[in-house]
Amino acid sequence: MDAATFDLVQSMLYAQRGLSVRNRFVDLADPPMRVHVTEVGSGEPLVLIHGGNSVAMSWLPLLPALASRFRVILPDRPGCGLTGPFDYRGVDLRAHGAAFVAGLLDGLGLERAALAANSMGGYFALAFAVEHPERVSRLILLGEPAGSSERAPLFHRLVGTRGLNALLYATVLRPPGDAVGLRQGWAKGRLVVHPDRVPDDLAECLAAGARLPGASRSWRRMVERVFVPAGSGVFARGMRATRALAPELARVSCPTLFLWGSEDPLGAPDVGRGLAERMPDARLVEIPDAGHLPWIDQPDRCATGILEFLPARPAEV
Rank of each mutant, 00 (worst) to 15 (best):
M1F: 06
M1C: 04
L8S: 15
V9N: 11
S11L: 09
Q16C: 13
V21M: 03
V37S: 01
V40Y: 03
G43I: 02
G43F: 06
L46Q: 04
L48H: 02
V55K: 05
A56F: 00
M57K: 09
S58M: 11
L62N: 01
L62W: 00
R69Y: 09
R71F: 06
P78M: 04
G79K: 08
L82P: 07
D87P: 10
Y88R: 01
V91D: 05
L93Q: 08
L93F: 02
A95I: 06
H96L: 08
A98M: 04
A99S: 15
V101T: 08
A102Y: 02
G107I: 07
L108S: 04
R112G: 00
A113R: 07
L115I: 13
A116C: 12
G121C: 02
G121A: 05
A125F: 10
A129Q: 04
E131S: 15
E131P: 07
H132M: 02
H132R: 12
V136M: 03
I140D: 01
A146T: 09
G147R: 09
S148I: 03
A152G: 03
V159P: 13
V159Y: 01
T161F: 04
R162M: 10
R162K: 15
L164H: 11
L164V: 10
N165I: 09
L167A: 14
A170T: 08
T171C: 08
V172M: 09
L173E: 09
R174W: 02
P175N: 07
A179I: 06
V180G: 04
R183E: 02
W186Y: 12
K188N: 13
A210W: 05
A210V: 08
L212N: 05
G214N: 12
S218N: 04
V226Y: 10
G231K: 10
V234C: 07
R237I: 00
G238V: 01
M239E: 11
A246I: 07
A246F: 12
E248Y: 15
V252W: 14
P255S: 10
F258P: 14
W260V: 01
E263V: 10
L266H: 15
P280E: 00
D281M: 10
A282H: 03
I287S: 11
P288Q: 14
A290L: 06
H292F: 11
Q298C: 12
